[in-house]
């Protein structure tokens, strides 16, 4: 997903040869990330999967124009975001005016405490901290950390400035750091190999 040359070759194979294999590969490359992204908005796994499917239907419909798209990743996230906002508007009968009005559910993976060298309690604390961040901040943090997106890409998808993205990621990091213990054994039982 983060190899632009590979993405470009897939784009061209789909556009020129209607290559279903390339289309399938592209779908697999983005499925989990787009699904997580959409889930943040719609908070339903089924709805998120339908929206991802709609994104790829759209992609197929405009396959001739694919070579003109310079950053396919950004493009896919943009369509996904628009479809999500439409979905919310239709289902909750209130037009969305700003990302901060949506109760975004972020999914930050902190799965293996052993690998993280921290306790389950500490993970709960981190998750709690993330949940208390403003929605837009959480979403930006998720896109940068989980999806490995560049600041510029996140900025293009969410239509904010690169500076905003950078500041929001810094705020999230600072908040997490503040809840962490400075020394092993302090406050939380922070276990560690060091």
């Amino acid at each position: 997903m983060n190899d632009p040359n590979h993405l470009r070759s897939l784009q061209e194979r789909i556009a020129l040869y209607e290559d279903m294999q390339a289309y399938h590969e592209l779908y697999n490359l983005f499925f989990h990330n787009l699904h997580r992204f959409c889930f943040s908005f719609v908070k339903s796994a089924e709805a998120a999967e339908e929206i991802v499917s709609d994104v790829f239907i759209k992609l197929w419909q405009i396959r001739n124009k694919l070579p003109e798209i310079t950053n396919l990743k950004v493009y896919l996230y943009q369509i996904a975001k628009n479809f999500c906002l439409n979905y919310i508007t239709r289902h909750f009968k209130n037009p969305v005016t700003s990302l901060d009005e949506i109760n975004i559910e972020t999914v930050i993976s902190l799965d293996n405490p052993e690998e993280l060298c921290i306790s389950a309690d500490l993970i709960n604390t981190i998750q709690q901290t993330i949940r208390q961040l403003p929605p837009q901040c959480r979403l930006i943090f998720q896109m940068v950390k989980e999806d490995g997106m560049r600041y510029k890409e996140v900025a293009d998808v969410l239509q904010v400035s690169v500076l905003t993205v950078r500041n929001q990621v810094a705020i999230a990091t600072k908040k997490i750091a503040e809840t962490l213990p400075a020394y092993i054994g302090q406050r939380q039982r922070a276990e560690g190999k060091r």
């Binding site: 989990h32 499917s53 799965d111 293996n112 060298c117 997490i176 060091r194």
Partner: peptide, 29 residues
């Protein structure tokens, strides 16, 4: 600050391993 920096580094890199997409999703699509 070192310990906290290390925890954040570990947390950050604890990205989900790219799981394969179940074929059912693409078929449904």
């Amino acid at each position: 600050w070192g310990l906290r920096a290390d925890i954040i580094r570990n947390m950050w890199n604890n990205r989900q391993v790219s799981r394969p997409v179940a074929p059912g999703h693409f078929d449904k699509h």
